[in-house]
């Protein structure tokens, strides 16, 4: 990576570069193709979608998007997803940050294990018990029930990201504040949290994305008022009909917000995904 490039390039090096870029292009093509196909088809009629060889040039139709937003009311579902995603992220942070701090500072690895087990329990395990729980609490048909369920995904992830982050903060910072007479609580809120911004953003973005993408909890706990977008995509599959155009337009609608979010916060997202695997 740090090798200096020689000034004069030989033919072999140019050829090497060409091969390199061709290979990179192929790799990119592989990762991008499904997205392109999805967007491409979202502007086609069902007949055009199933046509092989495909029409590469065609008059795009907006009918699929009209269907998604007007008759299927995806605006509502998007809003539900935002509320539930933001809620579970926020409360995931409220619970997760202090916990992660204590784990990092006081080596409470037992607690860490308990929280991380939530990440490995098969999701199906929760479906019926959680429904019973929320029924008992009269919380069916509320955002709260979905927020709590999605926190099962968000909280372990936030802890997973934040523990190494807090561990990387030098203990001297906190100790200096303590010497100046601050309580631990003050030190945490005034010293530690402000410098943890990048870590928090990382955890928050990914917790939000995971909540957004969650299918299993949402399908079981959501009702018509709280339906999230991954569940709503099934609106396009009916008893005697399947609307591929609408499906593709819905798929675009669902994935676009998270993709945009991920692109704008790339740095943090990469940090979050590589957390725990790479030192530092």
């Amino acid at each position: 990576m740090a090798k200096p490039q020689p000034k004069k390039r030989t033919a072999a090096q140019v050829l090497g570069d060409v091969i390199f870029y061709v290979v990179v292009l192929i790799i990119l093509g592989f990762f991008l193709a499904p997205f392109l196909w999805m967007v491409f088809n979202s502007f086609k009629t069902p007949l055009q979608i199933a046509k092989m060889p495909p029409d590469w040039i065609f008059t795009p139709t907006l009918a699929n998007y009209q269907n998604v937003f007007s008759s299927q009311k995806f605006g509502n579902y998007l809003w539900n997803s935002i509320v539930i995603g933001a809620g579970s992220t926020f409360f995931g942070l409220v619970l997760g940050l202090p916990a992660a701090y204590a784990i990092a500072r006081y080596k409470q690895y037992g607690i860490a294990t308990a929280i991380l087990i939530a990440r490995i329990v098969p999701g199906i395990t929760f479906l019926i018990p959680l429904f019973i729980l929320f029924r008992q609490l009269q919380m069916i048909d509320t955002y709260q029930s979905l927020i709590l369920a999605h926190m099962l995904v968000a909280l372990p992830f936030i802890v997973w990201v934040m523990v190494p982050f807090f561990e990387s903060i030098p203990q001297e910072l906190e100790e200096a504040a303590r010497v100046d007479g601050a309580s631990i609580l003050q030190a945490f809120f005034q010293i530690i949290l402000p410098i943890s911004g990048p870590g928090i953003v990382t955890g928050a973005i990914l917790a939000f994305v995971f909540s957004w993408n969650n299918f299993m909890f949402s399908i079981q706990l959501a009702t018509s008022n709280t339906k999230t977008v991954p569940v709503a995509i099934y609106n396009f599959i009916g008893y005697a009909q399947i609307d591929w155009g609408g499906l593709m337009a819905a798929a675009v609608t669902i994935t676009l917000p998270v993709l945009v979010l991920a692109l704008f916060t790339q740095r943090y997202v990469i940090r979050g995904l590589t957390a725990g695997a790479v030192k530092g």
Binding site: V24, L28, F31, P34, W212, M248, A251, T255, L261, V269
Partner: peptide
């Protein structure tokens, strides 16, 4: 740019993506 594109597959909603693959 390539780093950005790499992010897309894992961020995209699996249910939606599965539909696209099914069609392909």
């Amino acid at each position: 740019i390539i780093n950005s594109i790499m992010l897309l597959p894992m961020m995209a909603t699996p249910v939606a993506i599965a539909m696209v693959w099914l069609l392909m």
